[in-house]
């Protein structure tokens, strides 16, 4: 079996006595979009830098596609793209010239490079301004050029550090769409870090929450939600036309239901399995009608806040 695209083993980084990253174990498989979440200063960027070989870990190993990032940084850099948080371009060069420099640094032959540059500029929607100086670009345009910059070298893996920070919601959702299409169409593995939870939630296959250098939770968003907030339970939110004591009693008698709370016409039901069908039937049988039944899913916000409260 091929090695995982990203693997860290007890990765640790100290800065002058403070531990920025603390024995981090991480595995990301081919084609995944992994969201790396945490507040500012949690160690997200430091982890990415260690994975790129731009900084040396104090302890532990960071591997990309089986290559040790500290010992073989060039092999790692050849197959990874990195979009730093504050991406900078040579302002007096045009978008195309900036990308051309990157293709030269990657030793992509000129003829192939021209086609590739046109292609990625097309993907991020900057074809029309390709020959304009980057100094005149807006922040959103620069971020999109950053995406082009990452794609132009045909990476297997990309690291996106806060890809949506500081740009308007419209621009942010465009960027997120690029990330999804990049991952789905080209099979590129994505590790993105963010503190903006609701955005990341939409596109990540899996997330890891990092606080003070430790990974406190990891997994698909839904599973994390159930485990963390619901205590491993399912929760339903139901609105009925008319609520009555009988109705509540009959719902409570459904096997699997543990607790029912009622406030006006809203019922919230907790159980250890999915009981939506049984609950609807009980509502009908008691002469009421369901207006709204929703299996409560947890937003990352809730998951995240819970961890902060614990801290």
């Amino acid at each position: 079996m091929a090695p995982p695209v990203v693997e860290t083993i007890k990765l640790t980084k100290d800065y002058d006595g403070t531990r920025a990253v603390d024995s981090l174990d991480l595995r990301i498989e081919e084609g995944e979009i992994f969201g790396f979440l945490g507040p500012n200063g949690a160690g997200k960027t430091t982890t990415i830098l260690m994975l790129l070989g731009l900084t040396e870990p104090t302890l532990g190993v960071a591997k990309v596609c089986g290559h040790d990032a500290t010992r073989e940084p060039l092999k790692v850099k050849r197959i990874t793209g990195y979009l730093p948080e504050n991406v900078g371009f040579y302002e007096d060069l045009t978008a195309r010239e900036n990308l051309r420099y990157i293709t030269r640094l990657n030793r992509i032959p000129e003829r192939q490079a021209s086609g590739k540059i046109d292609e990625v500029l097309e993907i991020v929607g900057l074809s029309e301004v390709a020959d304009r100086e980057v100094g005149r670009f807006s922040r959103g345009m620069k971020r999109r050029l950053g995406m082009a910059d990452v794609l132009v070298k045909d990476p297997r893996l990309v690291f996106l550090d806060e890809p949506t920070a500081g740009i308007d919601p419209d621009g942010a959702s465009q960027i997120l769409d690029f990330i999804v299409s990049m991952s789905k169409e080209k099979g590129i593995t994505v590790l993105l870090s963010s503190h903006l939870l609701h955005q990341v939630q939409k596109i990540c296959d899996r997330v890891g929450i990092i606080v003070k250098g430790c990974m406190v939770a990891e997994g698909p968003v839904e599973r994390l939600g159930r485990e963390v907030v619901g205590g491993g339970q399912n929760a339903l939110e139901v609105q009925v036309t008319e609520s009555s004591a009988n109705l509540i009693e009959s719902i409570e008698s459904i096997p699997g239901v543990k607790a029912v709370e009622c406030s006006g016409d809203m019922l919230s039901i907790r159980g250890d399995k999915d009981v939506r069908a049984e609950v609807s039937r009980a509502i009908f049988e008691n002469g009421s009608l369901p207006l709204h039944i929703r299996a409560q899913d947890y937003t990352l916000e809730e998951i995240y806040l819970k961890y902060f409260r614990e801290e």
């Binding site: 850099k77 050849r78 990195y82 900078g88 640094l105 070298k153």
Partner: peptide, 17 residues
């Protein structure tokens, strides 16, 4: 100046010594 413009990390994440 490359460091403050943010181009240094972009260049150094390319495969070159």
């Amino acid at each position: 100046s490359e460091r403050s413009r943010g181009t240094l990390s972009r260049v150094l994440s390319q495969p070159l010594f």
